[in-house]
Design a protein around this nucleic acid. Structure first.
Lengths: 212, 212
DNA sequence: ACTCAGTCTTGTCAAATGAATAATAAAGAA
DNA sequence: TTCTTTATTATTCATTTGACAAGACTGAGT
């Protein structure tokens, strides 16, 4: 429904071109923050990556913290939206099918957006205000939803009983770890973890292991 | 100013004392590097954490890179040793028991040494020379061993057939993710992921899910 | 008592950092 | 056109970074 930046209902005095540079910076920031962490990434590095001057970051985002927030929003926003769409589409399917399709979706998503898991892990180890932001803005709902699915799966005898929190992190880890360790995988087997064949094989392996 | 510790004639040889400071620095470095990554952590921060002066780091390790290597060695060395001991002790057990005990060991280890997984993830996303060092020095053997166990488990019908690499990262992720996201977990459920009860429950959940 | 190598502290360096400022360019609105 | 808001570059500043240097302390061997 909502188109991205370039429509002109309310230009708000901000030219489309500036919006484009903003997005270019956010994209570069996402890459840098997920790779080097908040402190490890520098605004100059990000600006260079985006092909813009460092001063522009101060202009558009005032602080590094704000830039980080914008990057996170650009990542989680569409994810939550897509997840909600899937939820709605799957509402009628039996729980086993729901779980399988969701697992496959999570694997594909972890592969196509490795920054998301990388960024999470950068912050999830200590109680930074940034972690708090992600958790309260995006994660809480996602976890509630996961719990609901898990409860049904356990009730249906598809999964052995265990507190939901454990399954949550088991699934997140199982789906994503391969794609947050691509260079490690390259060294171990020579395989490219990001190749479509590898992604689908991983989705199959995860789904077949969990749903037996 | 002369002696400050007058009471006991400590038999500490000078070299022994210096060895202790060295280890204190390495320990602090491990914490800092695993939390903030190689670039994110500063030698001054590490020195302060260890209660020593920053110059001492240059004296003992010359470069930040060397300090990082020393930290990694202090982490992986004992781990590999313990793993080999377990391997030997389990050699006669049936494959199902081997797998179960290894899984429990991995969960406990991930919990008691969260720095290991954090450190890996900091480097595993891009092909740094540091990643190469870990992979070739420590990971290769570990992966070979995992493949052997997995092969047996699949042959015995305990696991559905799939390329070993997928199981490797599924297991690593499932065992460790909870403990690399402790603050996230805190926000989601209020639970302390590092509590013994939680650790054991996670080990149970992982083992019961994988071995059915 | 006196080395003297090993250990550790303090101070300093150039480079890089996040942020702020001033100056300039572009784009609408009047 | 002119005026005013927005967008961008270039410059500057205080702080922090990794590395280094120069000196001071310690204690085992002589």
């Amino acid at each position: 429904m909502t188109t991205d930046a370039v429509s002109e209902p309310e230009p708000k005095r901000r030219s489309a071109r500036s919006q484009e540079t903003r997005e270019r910076i956010v994209k570069a920031a996402l890459k840098a923050f997920s790779e080097s962490g908040f402190e490890g990434a520098s605004t100059r590095q990000i600006a260079a990556l985006a092909g813009e001057s460092q001063g522009l970051i101060t202009y558009h985002f005032s602080t590094k913290e704000n830039l980080w927030k914008a990057a996170v929003d650009s990542l989680f926003g569409p994810f939550i939206e897509e997840l909600n769409a899937r939820k709605a589409a799957l509402a009628d399917a039996d729980i086993r099918t729901q779980l399988r399709l969701l697992l496959i979706f999570f694997v594909r998503h972890a592969a196509s957006h490795p920054e998301q898991n990388r960024l999470m892990m950068q912050e999830a180890q200590s109680e930074t205000p940034r972690m708090r932001y992600i958790a309260e803005t995006y994660l809480k709902d996602q976890y509630e939803f996961a719990c609901e699915i898990l409860r049904q799966a356990i009730d249906a005898g598809i999964l052995p009983p265990a507190p939901h929190i454990h399954y949550f992190y088991i699934v997140v880890g199982a789906c994503s770890r391969l794609f947050t360790a691509t260079s490690e995988c390259k060294y171990l087997t020579g395989d490219d973890a990001m190749s479509p064949a590898m992604i689908e094989a991983h989705a199959e392996a995860v789904a077949n292991l969990i749903l037996r």
